[in-house]
């Protein structure tokens, strides 16, 4: 479980200090909202107040974040991290593209149905990832079908049928709604 257990003090990584400061700032802003966003009742002991746990957790984040920021800044003064912060931000920014791919898949499913959306998604994403040969694209279509059969047809997970299914004849419509 402990991914990092057993390691010594690790060196500062690119972007680490900026990320720590960002988290600390967000936590501090949220902590400043404690009075508005939680309730503190009269005559209740502090640990039983609804606002106690958010205050404790945000306070802990701010405290540890401030110490981490200071130690990170001192580490950075001693030796710069291997790699630039900007390169790291660009790398993380590239993941936004795949976030958008994922959200398009989410948006498409209720319209064209789980089966079509899944096959389309796997084939297009595999194309984008560099797998463009016909056999691999065929394999992707097969895998898409397998995923839908496994989860929707056999395990009956709750994924609604596509809007497009309403255009089908009644018998086929029900079959598609239930299985794909």
């Amino acid at each position: 479980m402990s991914e990092k257990s057993g390691e010594g003090h690790p060196a500062l990584r690119p972007g680490e200090l900026a990320f720590t400061i960002l988290i600390t700032l967000v936590a501090a802003i949220l902590l400043s909202q404690i009075g508005e966003q939680t309730k503190f009742y009269k005559r209740l002991k502090l640990p039983t107040q609804p606002g106690f746990w958010p205050a404790l957790s945000l306070g802990g984040m701010v405290l540890s974040g401030v110490i981490l920021s200071i130690t990170g800044w001192l580490k950075r003064r001693r030796s710069a991290p291997a790699g630039s912060d900007l390169e790291e931000i660009v790398f993380i920014g590239r993941a936004v593209e795949f976030m958008l791919w994922f959200m398009v898949y989410v948006w498409l499913t209720p319209w064209i149905g789980y089966l079509a959306a899944t096959i389309l998604f796997i084939m297009c994403l595999a194309w984008r990832a560099g797998y463009r040969s016909l056999p691999v694209q065929g394999l992707c279509a097969g895998l898409g079908l397998f995923v839908v059969l496994l989860f929707k047809s056999f395990l009956s997970v709750k994924i609604p049928g596509g809007e497009v299914y309403t255009l089908l004849p009644q018998g086929l419509q029900t079959f598609m709604m239930v299985n794909f």
Partner: peptide
């Protein structure tokens, strides 16, 4: 138990507690 990462772990534990609230 997160050696060399105690403060990071503390911050992330607190973050987890906050999300749950």
């Amino acid at each position: 138990t997160h050696r060399g990462m105690h403060l990071v772990s503390l911050m992330l534990v607190c973050f987890g507690i906050f999300i749950n609230t």
